[in-house]
Design a protein around this nucleic acid. Sequence first.
DNA 1: GTCTATAGACGGATAGAC
DNA 2: GTCTATCCGTCTATAGAC
Lengths: 194, 194
Amino acid sequence: MARTGRRPGATDTRDEILDAARRTFSASGYDGATIRGIAAEADVDPALVHHYFGTKDELFVTALQIPVNPAALLSGVIAEGPEGLGERIVRTMLTVWDSNDANPLLMLLRSLANEQVAPMMREFVAHAIVRPLVEALGTPDAQVRATLAASQFGGLMMVRYVLKVEPLASLPAAEVARIVGPNVQRYLTGDLSS
Amino acid sequence: MARTGRRPGATDTRDEILDAARRTFSASGYDGATIRGIAAEADVDPALVHHYFGTKDELFVTALQIPVNPAALLSGVIAEGPEGLGERIVRTMLTVWDSNDANPLLMLLRSLANEQVAPMMREFVAHAIVRPLVEALGTPDAQVRATLAASQFGGLMMVRYVLKVEPLASLPAAEVARIVGPNVQRYLTGDLSS
DNA sequence: GTCTATAGACGGATAGAC
DNA sequence: GTCTATCCGTCTATAGAC
């Protein structure tokens, strides 16, 4: 099955453009990325990009189709049974993504991140969310705990207010708080090694 | 303190532009929002926007300065003590944001969300993350549980890979999995009413 | 304070030569 | 298959009249 080396008789310009597109979309976001920029990154003419992939939107969608199917990966992890599932999922996700930037979900997330807004966002999270929590906790591991809590806050807002995934988007605030609260509490004051 | 009605002798065009900017940035994202669009929303000439706020970037920053200081809000919640802090924070956040769209953090988040990418993202989360989990769980509340897990995944990716907030961005995958795993596990198979 | 007019730049997309 | 040339639209930003 291994297919090493360059196949003779065919150029791989198309794949090079695709790779360049993935890198550029991930780095600059969908809006920030330009056809011209992608072409420069791939060292080809901008017209070639259109020639192979049509519109910018089609290129983006094509760039999302990646060999490694994340759903299949997830299914594999699930198949090992419910015990310790949470830890296995997180470890698998992070391990894959730490080592592999060409990842569709990561590319999607980074494509969301506008270059000018992302730094403001980090600033905001650090100052308005993490810092007050760190001061309130006052423990050596406060920074980790506060950041973990922030990750849950951020994900909740993402799912509820931006992506509006049901049923979480429509659940009453009090009910969500009742369910999510204990998890945040564990991050802040609970035993993290258990 | 109440200030009802329009004050005589001064126009409030500036505030109207600012409000329009907040609405537009929240709805369309930073890139998607245009000075022209904001001006139209405020029913004024585009040049006026520049006149009052300078560049688009300055307008964005100004729009972020909101009367309600989220850090102060958070401090108030923290001051009530560590017991039940997690639930109180989540409830306070959601309650404020459910009723008030003119919120800086929410505006930042939505400004991240490109109009073309956000739907793809929702699709991806629903199909590649939530659906496999729902099928694996097979319980009536599987949808809620899977969405909650997705919220933690998303927040983690946001903090670790997009915003790169330390120390969470540099922690080894295995350690993050050990810490975050139990929280995900609770969402998937734990008792949500406790 | 408000608007008209426009400069100036950029990016997506296409036609067509080679 | 690849590139040149270019059209066309959109945007920010400014100068200046009223």
